[in-house]
């Protein structure tokens, strides 16, 4: 189990500061939710952790040591939002997973490893030779998760992994994330704009706005008694069924 620390992380694109001195600890063996609106910098924070966004300042530490961005072994892996652009259409899903394996394996153990990973995400191992175009959005997202697990990571960053999916498969993916985390004890940073989703999967939550963390803490505490005005505004804008809203608006 590993802990991921962001220390005073700053990212700039040109004159635009996307992340402004963000410090955040993702506790080991937990799912931490990261919520915020578009442009708040939450995706950039994840990309900075895997080396896709250049750091203008600060560090990202894994168990106290800087995260490696070189070589085959990458302890921090990421799952992306759009399952339709996150798998190479010219590669079978098996090949995509093999590419993420940290070491080269012979044919037989390699096939066994692919089968193990596909089973882990509840996909039929016989589909390893399929092209991504034969899979539905939800199945692709399972493959993307399997690929991230193939790198034997200590930490997984999940960036809006359900927002491009149809409502009917969102539940299945969220169940999978919780189950996978329980079984492997991975540390997960779960990014979402949807507070209810974060409430369901994450034990801890951080709220971002304008490239800064405005609030963080245990999910139950933050959502029941938010300390920051911004968190309160976010919670207030959650759509509430009309029936319940009328009740809450007219307290007797």
């Amino acid at each position: 189990m590993s802990r991921l620390d962001f220390e005073d992380v700053t990212v700039r694109y040109g004159h635009h500061t996307v992340l402004d001195g963000v410090s955040l600890t993702v506790p080991e063996g937990q799912i931490m939710g990261l919520v915020g609106e578009s442009g708040s910098g939450k995706s950039t924070l994840a990309r900075a952790a895997v080396g896709l966004a250049p750091l203008a300042g600060g560090r990202v530490l894994l168990d106290g040591r800087p995260v490696r961005h070189q070589g085959r072994r990458r302890p921090v892996q990421m799952v992306f939002q759009d399952p339709f652009s996150s798998l190479d259409p010219r590669m079978s899903i098996g090949q995509s997973i093999v590419e993420a394996l940290p070491e080269r394996l012979r044919r037989a153990p390699r096939a066994a490893e692919i089968a193990r990973l596909l089973q882990l995400v509840h996909l039929d191992p016989a589909r390893a030779a399929d092209a991504p175009s034969r899979l539905s959005g939800g199945q692709r997202q399972r493959v993307a998760i399997a690929r991230a697990l193939a790198g034997r990571p200590a930490v997984i960053l999940a960036d809006e992994i359900t927002s491009a999916l149809d409502v009917s498969v969102q539940g299945a993916i969220l169940n999978l994330v919780r189950e996978m985390q329980r079984e492997t004890g991975l540390t997960v940073l779960f990014i979402s704009h949807n507070l209810a989703v974060v409430r369901y999967v994450a034990t801890h939550v951080a709220v971002m706005a304008g490239g800064r963390i405005v609030e963080q803490g245990p999910t139950a505490r933050v959502f029941s008694s938010p300390a920051s005005d911004y968190t309160r505004e976010l919670l207030a804008s959650m759509p509430v069924p009309a029936a319940r809203r009328h009740l809450s608006q007219n307290p007797i």
Binding site: V167, S168, V169, Q170, G171, A172, L174, N175, R178, L195, A196, V197, R199, Y200, F223, M238
Partner: peptide, 19 residues
């Protein structure tokens, strides 16, 4: 459809519905 999407009152200990 309702059970597959969590809201602020969803039971945290039960899995979500799937289709």
């Amino acid at each position: 459809l309702i059970g597959a999407v969590p809201d602020m009152a969803t039971d945290l200990h039960a899995p979500l519905d799937t289709i």
